[in-house]
């Protein structure tokens, strides 16, 4: 039997250890941000946002990249948001507990864990070669849409689960049909949670690089797209291209693009966390 004093000392040591581990993790996050900022901030000027990529590092910019990110994200949102929410509604409100439903559920949790690059290969095979959509904005948007679909489905279901059954029963008792209950009650009440999930899903899609490389994103685009069938590049691809060059000046561009990218994703995540907090606080059943 270890003496009480020593056991208490171990306890205190563990608290210190966990403090140290937390500090270490946050220090990594901090040094990541600092290394980006130190390298990248000097390059962040207006010209950087309105210039096309270039062979000369100091003239290169991210115009085609951020326009590409914006257009690809629009396609992704149009595809994934309605389908994801409706699928979540089905699984939570309609589906009876049977074999097919449980297959769909297991399948969704597996899809959430499939490496993103595998989605890219699937999109290359189906969208590019079977459906001949080309290496276009449409293909990219569809690919990322399928990739984030499981996230939207899961968060939608979680949001719906927080609505008490009594709300639904009250509406049914007044003669509302299933769809009326959902349209007028369940969906509006769970909107906060659903939106949070949508934001998180889109912020994940903004940072995705690997699947877009496999479907053939271009790294050098010196024009703006005129339709969704045009070739594309996006911010992470542009950053990847600059990181993989040996010259120091391009690394500065990469850091600057990284700041923009991280700024976007962290803002979206912070917004989602804030919304989740607000909705949890406001709603009391």
């Amino acid at each position: 039997m270890i003496p009480l004093k020593r056991r208490k000392a171990y306890d205190a040591i563990f608290v210190w250890l966990s403090g140290l581990v937390l500090f270490f993790s946050l220090l990594t996050l901090f040094s990541l941000m600092m290394s980006l900022l130190i390298q990248g901030v000097p390059r962040l000027n207006v010209a950087f946002f309105v210039s096309f990529p270039s062979r000369f590092a100091e003239q290169a910019g991210i115009l085609s990249a951020w326009v590409g990110t914006l257009t690809v994200m629009s396609v992704t949102a149009v595809v994934a948001v309605p389908v994801g929410i409706l699928a979540g509604l089905y699984l939570e409100e309609y589906a009876s507990k049977n074999f097919l439903t449980s297959i769909i559920e297991i399948n969704i949790s597996n899809l959430a864990g499939v490496p993103s690059i595998v989605y890219g290969l699937m999109a290359l095979g189906i969208f590019v070669y079977q459906m001949h959509l080309g290496q276009s904005i449409l293909t990219a948007g569809l690919t990322l849409g399928l990739l984030v679909l499981p996230i939207i489905i899961v968060t939608t279901r979680e949001a719906l689960r927080t609505i008490p059954t009594t709300m639904r029963e009250a509406a049914y008792a007044l003669g509302a049909t299933r769809w009326q209950v959902m349209r007028d009650h369940t969906i509006p009440y769970s909107m906060g949670g659903i939106l949070t999930g949508v934001i998180i899903a889109l912020s994940r899609a903004i940072g995705e690089t690997a699947p877009l490389i496999t479907i053939g994103a271009l790294t050098f685009i010196a024009f703006l797209p005129s339709s969704i069938m045009d070739p594309f590049t996006v911010l992470p691809i542009q950053m990847f291209n600059w990181v993989s060059r040996p010259q120091e000046e391009f690394h500065q561009n990469a850091a600057a693009a990284g700041i923009v990218l991280i700024g976007l994703t962290l803002t979206m995540n912070a917004l989602a966390i804030y919304m989740r907090y607000q909705f949890r606080k406001r709603i009391k059943w």
């Binding site: 993790s25 990594t28 996050l29 990541l32 980006l36 912020s203 994940r204 903004i206 940072g207 995705e208 690089t209 690997a210 992470p236 950053m239 990847f240 990181v243 990284g258 990218l261 991280i262 994703t265 962290l266 995540n269």
Partner: peptide, 8 residues
């Protein structure tokens, strides 16, 4: 930490 894009 897990929200940072992997390319970064």
């Amino acid at each position: 930490l897990s929200a940072v894009p992997t390319v970064v």
